[in-house]
Simulated assay, not measured.
Amino acid sequence: MKKIINTENAPAAIGPYVQGVDLGNMLFASGQIPLDPVTGKMSDCVKEQAKQSLANVKAIITAAGYQVSDIVKTTIFLADMNDFAAVNAIYEAFFTEHHAGFPARSCVQVARIPKDAKVEIEVIAVK
């Protein structure tokens, strides 16, 4: 049974999509840009943006009853591949902090991210 996931602990969708879709044992979380869900603002620092994007992802998976350790696939979109090392360090710390193994991952540079963010992260989680 398909369940739509929405939480106030992550930014609301800024287009015709939902924060996540839970299929019961598999969750697809939409790409999260680094908007603070309370203020609607984002830092200019790519490291802070990566932290906020991951916090938003965590809020969505938590709202659906999943844990960070349930994440099996991530996709990272970067506005500038020169930020790869900085984002990678934040990403590694996030999964290490949550005692989760590292999921499969893709990381690509894109021409532009909504709201001119420097990073966007989407995940798939499985129970």
Rank of each mutant, 00 (worst) to 15 (best):
K2S: 13
K2A: 14
N6F: 05
E8I: 12
P11L: 05
A12I: 12
A12E: 11
I14F: 03
I14L: 09
G15Y: 00
G15D: 07
P16W: 01
Y17H: 08
V18I: 08
G20F: 01
V21W: 01
V21P: 06
D22E: 05
D22P: 11
G24I: 05
L27C: 06
F28G: 00
A29Y: 00
G31Q: 06
Q32V: 04
Q32F: 01
I33N: 08
L35Q: 08
P37A: 06
D44S: 15
E48F: 02
K51T: 11
Q52S: 10
L54D: 14
L54F: 14
A55L: 15
N56Q: 08
N56G: 07
N56P: 12
N56R: 14
V57M: 15
V57L: 14
K58R: 13
K58E: 15
I60Q: 11
G65I: 10
Y66P: 03
Q67I: 01
V72L: 08
K73Y: 12
K73A: 13
D80P: 07
D80A: 07
M81A: 05
N82Y: 00
N82P: 01
N82G: 13
N82E: 11
D83F: 00
A85P: 00
A86C: 11
I90T: 13
E92F: 07
A93C: 00
F94V: 09
F95P: 10
F95Q: 02
T96P: 01
G101E: 08
G101Y: 01
F102S: 14
R105M: 14
R105G: 11
S106N: 12
V110K: 15
R112I: 06
D116I: 02
A117F: 05
E120H: 06
I124M: 15
I124C: 12
